[in-house]
Design a binder for these strands. Structure first.
Length: 135
DNA sequence: GCCAACGTTGGC
DNA sequence: GCCAACGTTGGC
């Protein structure tokens, strides 16, 4: 199983909305690197959910409930979407501040490549995030 | 509100 | 194919 992270501004689409709606079509991605990552997602992969801008924290873990398909918001065959469903809500949300000050997490792509909206996460990073979220 | 990072566009 | 100009993202 692989691990990923997706970003969303909470004012656009929040973790709470996902919990309420039970699933979401993750569409509208218009960046090739992010698109390539969407294509690599397998059903059952775990996806960290990050609130950018006004949130700046990881709120929980979702799972890929449908692998990539044509993005329904465009006819352009370049772009794809996946379907995500919530898996677990963190007892403690992980702030960006905490990530930046943690020796294991400070090299995450989230920090290094702050504009990418869909990115892979390393096993050891996931393990540390889950550890912190349960504290 | 500002600005750094970085992706995209378009002229040459 | 290069690079300047420009637009967008997202942290501060």
């Amino acid at each position: 199983m692989n691990f990923w992270l997706v970003k969303s501004e909470p004012s656009t689409y929040s973790w709470d909305q996902l919990l309420k709606e039970k699933k979401v079509i993750w569409d509208g991605v218009r960046n090739y690197t992010a698109r390539n990552n969407l294509r690599l997602m397998k059903k059952g992969d775990n996806v960290l959910f990050y609130h950018s801008n006004t949130g700046m924290c990881i709120t929980g873990i979702a799972t890929v409930s449908k692998e990539y398909f044509q993005d329904p918001t465009t006819q352009d065959k370049n772009w794809v979407a996946v379907e995500l469903s919530p898996l677990s809500t963190f007892k403690n949300q992980i702030d960006l501040k905490e990530i930046k000050s943690n020796p294991i997490l400070k090299n995450m792509l989230l920090v290094k490549q702050s504009r990418l909206s869909v990115m892979p996460v390393k096993k050891e990073e996931i393990a540390e995030i889950i550890r912190l979220s349960e504290k």
